[in-house]
């Protein structure tokens, strides 16, 4: 796993962005950008070369699922790995995310080891 990649962390709660960022830093990632919902995430994608998106599901304005669908439908970002971090675990939600092309899925509450494990699976 290349730790020099740029990661976009998307969550409407600053606390969760901080926790996810702390975990990513613990894992060795140094280039981390934040966005507080799907629309600002799209702005960040336009302005930066993002290599990995770690996004919450349940956000106002644009949900994580809508962001995922928009990313997968775009020419520029469609191949960017997308890790969904969420409290939503209803089977239909998981199916919707898989159908929309999510790379992997972490359920809250989570540990650093679980995030690491999911990223290892994404990057093989």
């Amino acid at each position: 796993m290349d730790l020099s990649i740029t990661v976009l962390v998307v969550d409407d709660f600053a606390t969760m962005r901080r926790i996810v960022k702390n975990i990513l830093r613990q894992l060795g990632f140094e280039n981390i950008i934040e966005a507080d919902d799907g629309t600002t995430a799209l702005d960040a994608l336009k302005k930066n070369k993002i290599d990995l998106i770690v996004s919450d599901w349940n956000m106002p304005k644009m949900t994580g699922l809508e962001l995922l669908k928009t990313v997968r439908a775009s020419d520029e970002y469609k191949d960017v790995p997308f890790l969904m971090v969420t409290a939503e675990t209803q089977k239909q939600n998981v199916l919707d995310a898989v159908q929309a092309g999510v790379s992997n899925y972490v359920v809250k509450p989570f540990t650093a080891e679980q995030i690491s494990d999911k990223l290892q699976k994404i990057y093989g």
Binding site: M16, E88, K108, P109
Partner: peptide
Amino acid sequence: GELTNMISGQ
């Protein structure tokens, strides 16, 4: 708020 969200989700 986030802890409440996680407790509700779990």
